[in-house]
């Protein structure tokens, strides 16, 4: 890859800086003002911003478009792309288009099943899975070819990310799956929200033993809790989430109005612990519709100033 095409996230990670990314969910509508408002809250506090792709299968402004709005505001987007809604033809075409617009990071996902969303009557696609998508994006970058083997003129050269959930079952398979993603061509991993640090450490240890942590940058996911109810909801209702009883208790132990403050404190403490773990190269802060707190978390975690974009 030539230097000009490097993403800021890639530069930060390759220099060995502890990276910070956040998330921006596009609006259910066409108002770019929602994006710019969130962008203003995040600017200067993070190295890149993930833009979700119809997350939880609810129809929203497209990820590519919202990424483009962020670019225009001087923020670096990580375009999330799910295989739920597009077949391989549409995926490749959108990746080429996105790169032509200046989007340099992609996070390859399978996507939440449509039965969770607002239009459960929709047909899904799942022509390829997330690992096959990673493979395809890498082949475009490294070999300059699309999935048919056709030589592309100006192939997209994306910095490739994927998600990993250290807390889902079957636990023994989680590291094999991470290995498959890394072998397929992933440069960085963003994990599910970490509340159970013991289990996360165990997962990292297993990954290290397999030599995986040397091959990709791992960014640990964190989500500041707003209330004890939120902690409980995540523990019970959100698939693949591991919120230990101690966390729920801690949130419940403070008066309701103090909960957001406690949630932020807990999040900052978690980041401090994550920074101590060898092979964790950054954090991904998913402050769901709470973007105004990201700056506070980053500042309290001692992660300011962020490296200047080069």
């Amino acid at each position: 890859m030539n230097k000009k095409s490097l993403s800021q996230l890639q530069i930060v990670l390759s220099k060995g800086d502890f990276a910070v990314t956040a998330e921006c969910g596009p609006p259910r509508g066409s108002d770019p003002g929602v994006i710019s408002k969130k962008a203003e809250l995040l600017k200067g506090y993070v190295d890149a911003v993930n833009v979700t792709d119809n997350q939880t299968a609810i129809v929203r402004m497209s990820s590519i478009t919202a990424c483009t709005h962020l670019l225009q505001m001087g923020l670096e987007p990580v375009m999330q792309m799910v295989t739920r809604d597009r077949n391989r033809i549409a995926l490749q075409s959108d990746i080429m288009g996105a790169y032509s617009l200046g989007i340099k990071n992609i996070l390859c996902l399978s996507g939440d099943h449509q039965s969770f969303g607002s239009q459960p009557d929709a047909m899904n696609v799942f022509d390829i899975d997330s690992i096959q998508l990673i493979h395809a994006v890498r082949a475009m970058r490294e070999e300059g070819k699309d999935m048919s083997g056709f030589d592309l003129k100006e192939p997209p050269r994306m910095f490739i990310g994927a998600a990993a959930n250290p807390f889902a079952d079957p636990f023994e398979y989680r590291v094999i799956r991470l290995a498959k993603k890394i072998d397929a061509g992933v440069d960085f991993i963003q994990t599910q929200c970490v509340y159970n640090l013991d289990r996360f450490k165990e997962w990292i240890k297993m990954a290290r033993e397999e030599g995986l942590t040397e091959k990709a940058h791992i960014l640990a996911g964190v989500t500041p809790l707003k209330s004890a109810g939120m902690a409980k909801y995540m523990a019970e209702k959100v698939a693949g989430m591991d919120v230990p009883e101690s966390v729920i208790k801690r949130m419940a132990s403070v008066p309701k109005e103090k909960c957001p403050e406690e949630g932020i404190k807990l999040c900052v403490e978690t980041i401090a612990e994550l920074r101590e773990i060898k092979d964790v190269h950054g954090v991904h802060i998913m402050a769901i519709e709470w973007e105004e707190k990201v700056g506070e978390v980053v500042k309290a975690a001692g992660l300011l100033p962020r490296p200047e974009p080069t």
Binding site: A164, A168, A239
Partner: peptide
């Protein structure tokens, strides 16, 4: 598999059950 995944389980597998049901 609800998502027809060919390269392993998604992050929604819990206690042997699928996240959608």
């Amino acid at each position: 598999c609800s998502k027809r995944l060919l390269n392993g389980p998604c992050g929604g597998s819990k206690d042997g059950k699928c996240e959608i049901d």
